[in-house]
Amino acid sequence: MDLKQISDMQLSMDERHGFPVKFDNASDMYAQLTRDLVGLFGEIGEFANIVKKVNIKLDRPQDYVFDLDSAKDNLSEELIDSLIYIIRIAAMLGIDLESEVVKKIRFNESRYAQLRKQ
């Protein structure tokens, strides 16, 4: 499954559940964009909090209780939640994530060519 198919699947599910990504006016769109942006930052914050807890556990294993084995699953969940918000935001703004990601990777390949390892 490619990114376009994943995006379409998410947006279809959003529509079935009443989470809008298409709007009649800019005011409504920007209000939803604001809500989704706050949601995205919340998910990124949850991801960062898990990373913080892993670092505490690594630095002071005797002083902090955190299951390092479950960190990957938790990080994965928060990262995917973040991606879902990014898919929604891109749809609201009419951004084709798949083509824009490919374009950016190609740009970065050139931009960072001097850092390439042989």
Rank of each mutant, 00 (worst) to 15 (best):
D2F: 06
L3I: 00
D8R: 14
D8G: 03
S12I: 00
M13D: 13
E15K: 12
H17P: 08
G18Y: 10
P20T: 09
D24E: 13
D24Q: 10
D24N: 10
N25K: 11
N25W: 13
N25H: 14
S27W: 10
S27A: 12
D28G: 13
M29K: 15
A31V: 01
Q32W: 15
Q32T: 06
Q32S: 14
T34A: 14
R35Y: 14
L37V: 01
V38M: 13
L40D: 11
F41Y: 10
E43G: 04
I44P: 00
A48F: 03
A48K: 04
I50G: 01
V51Y: 09
V54T: 12
V54R: 09
N55V: 00
I56Y: 04
D59M: 02
R60I: 03
P61Q: 03
P61A: 02
D63E: 15
V65H: 07
F66E: 11
F66Y: 11
F66K: 06
L68S: 04
D69Q: 13
D69P: 02
A71R: 05
N74Y: 12
L75G: 05
L79T: 00
D81Q: 07
D81Y: 09
S82I: 06
L83Y: 05
I84E: 15
Y85A: 07
Y85V: 00
Y85C: 01
I86P: 15
I86C: 13
A90P: 09
A91E: 05
M92L: 02
G94N: 01
D96A: 04
L97W: 05
E100P: 03
V102G: 03
R106M: 10
N108I: 02
S110H: 13
Y112K: 09
Q114I: 04
Q114N: 04
L115F: 04
K117C: 06
K117I: 01
Q118A: 08
